[in-house]
Write a protein that binds this DNA or RNA. Structure first.
Lengths: 207, 207
DNA sequence: ATAACATCGTTACATATGTAACGCTGTATT
DNA sequence: AATACAGCGTTACATATGTAACGATGTTAT
């Protein structure tokens, strides 16, 4: 099993796992590549090819065992131990995201939020404690935080990003609509809502 | 100039336009493909190739005129007239998005928000009026809404989606972590924050 | 026990996307 | 006015990604 998968593949694996979890909740024990493909909006061949990447083997005429496949994808995607995540920028969007992720992925828990408004420090929002921005280094070190979510306004994003990289961030989920400049070994995942909306409008208009 | 561009290309054009707007605010009149490429995180060749799609021509040794390029990209990406957008699901995330888009893209304005909690009807949030879900057909017809943002919980997303398609939605920006089933002529743009976070963590871990 | 069948794993192919090379063009300089 | 040069537009190439075809495999039913 290769230790590195492509961006697209990782995205699909994450999606498969979520779909499989839903199936498990509905007491579904096994699933065929066809069905999983339909739910994920891809072809059955794509699913089988992705399973190869994970190194998981199904059984002809039986399909994939839901529970053990979830386990296998987890071993591939997740770190061996639960990971601590931080969020910077406790505005409307930051709070919404804290709420969104609260309890959603136990292995990827947001344990600290930072804001440059000092009055927010000490507050607990959706189970997450707030700190001042200057506390980033110590809190990162204490919790071994490597993954961060940036939800500050665009004009502060680069500045915050630099602080985070210095503090040891490796993976950044960036909601600010700017291209962050980072060292090559850092991974930035951009969520650009403006672009997404414009794409929805554009392709909705031209079928 | 081709009337249809690829998904990726449209995403980059949207990004270029935003970067160009920033430049314009800083009174920058013209820009080279190199600089625009650097800001967007792509190669110069990519920028020039994308300009071909838009049908915009620069001038050797002078580069691209910022103002007229913004205009050209707008003509390519935007509808001839400003478009009305709706949002469904006025929870934490919905409100954050209403605030985020408030005044950001004048040609793509969120004019109506819907929620199944009747107490929200009549409220105005970030300049956007709230309605009950059952009012979707009439409000869509009145405002000729074709683009919608879905921010309802996962278990209600498909149901809401069906209503929206019936009401005439063509482009859907979906924040719910489920694969929506829609007719072929409808375009769904998924923003999957869970997957994005998992990707950030995965690639941060494996450089 | 054996044969038929459905589904899997894998390899080979097709398409989409990005990168680089190259000649062209217009400006600026002497 | 002629020449040098920086940057553009385009074409050709390389890589990445997705699709489909095909043989292998295990289960089930006779």
């Amino acid at each position: 099993m290769p230790l590195l998968a492509s961006d697209r593949t990782v995205g699909r694996l994450s999606l498969y796992r979520r779909l499989l979890s839903h199936l498990l909740q509905e007491k579904v024990r096994s699933v065929f590549s066809h069905r999983l493909a339909e739910a994920a909006g891809v072809t059955a061949a794509q699913v089988r090819r992705d399973m190869m990447v994970v190194g998981y083997n199904g059984i002809p005429t039986k399909g994939y065992d839901v529970e053990s496949l979830i386990e296998s994808i987890g071993q591939f995607l997740d770190a061996p131990d639960p990971e601590a995540v931080a969020l910077v920028g406790v505005g409307n969007l930051g709070r919404a995201i804290l709420s969104y992720f609260d309890g959603r992925r136990p292995n990827l828990k947001i344990v600290a939020a930072f804001d440059n408004d000092p009055s927010k420090a000490g507050q607990v929002i959706s189970g997450c404690r707030c700190y001042a921005v200057r506390q980033i280094p110590e809190v990162f070190a204490e919790n071994e935080i490597a993954t961060v979510i940036i939800t500050v306004p665009a004009d502060q994003a680069q500045e915050v990003c630099d602080l985070l990289v210095d503090a040891g961030a490796k993976g950044i989920l960036n909601f600010a609509p700017v291209g962050l400049r980072v060292p090559a070994y850092i991974h930035v995942e951009n969520v650009d809502m403006t672009t997404s909306l414009e794409k929805a409008a554009y392709f909705g208009r031209r079928p």
